[in-house]
């Protein structure tokens, strides 16, 4: 009986010590280091004036006007608190209906990533094909030569990281801001 009680007392003290070490000292030290080394990245990669940010380079925003490139569909309608996905399976009637609706709006040849919703609901990227697919619409709405729009798309396109990791992608928010910055 006494040894069992001892176990629980040691356990309590151990939880307190582990909490101080791994639950307070560790995350606070990492916060301090990250803030000193990478303040921009550790604070959400925000863009625009600090007092009134225009968003995060890593978080998709809703775009509906024809003069903007549109991001991938979002099951949470671009709400970030909480994030969410459709969670619809391959045989889901809802998924089939959503895809048909998007085809009707975007055209029957729209690339896959514009027809299917992202995992996070906040995917900041589209494929280069999905950007190319929208160039004509954006150029017409802005009365710009398509070549100029393509030039901005190319500037907002990242290849695979280090040339081999992940997929090529276009950051929609950064691309749209560069369009708005044209004068």
């Amino acid at each position: 009986m006494k040894s069992i009680l001892t176990d629980y007392l040691v356990a309590l003290r151990a939880i307190v010590v582990f909490t101080v070490l791994t639950g307070l000292a560790y995350p606070l030290a990492m916060t301090g280091l990250a803030q000193a080394l990478f303040p921009q990245a550790a604070n959400g990669s925000l863009i625009g004036p600090a007092a009134q940010p225009a968003g995060s380079a890593l978080i998709a925003q809703k775009f509906t006007a024809p003069k903007y490139f549109w991001p991938r569909p979002s099951a949470s309608d671009f709400g970030a608190v909480p994030s969410g996905a459709s969670n619809q399976g391959f045989t889901s009637a809802k998924l089939a209906a959503a895809v048909e609706e998007r085809r009707a709006a975007l055209g029957s040849n729209a690339p896959s990533d514009l027809l299917y919703a992202s995992g996070s609901g906040l995917d900041p990227h589209i494929s280069p094909e999905a950007a190319e697919y929208q160039v004509a619409r954006v150029a017409e709405a802005r009365q710009l030569p398509p070549e100029l729009v393509r030039h901005l798309v190319a500037a907002a396109t990242e290849g695979p990281q280090f040339g081999f990791l992940g997929q090529a992608r276009v950051n929609v928010l950064l691309l749209n801001r560069s369009l708005d910055a044209l004068k």
């Binding site: 991938r72 996905a85 459709s86 969670n87 619809q88 998924l95 089939a96 895809v99 896959s112 990533d113 027809l115 299917y116 919703a117 992202s118 995992g119 996070s120 995917d123 990227h125 589209i126 494929s127 992940g166 997929q167 992608r169």
Partner: peptide
């Protein structure tokens, strides 16, 4: 759905 690449629930990157 006849969508060529299964990107539902996946991220472009």
């Amino acid at each position: 759905t006849h969508v060529p690449i299964n990107m539902e629930g996946k991220e472009q990157r």
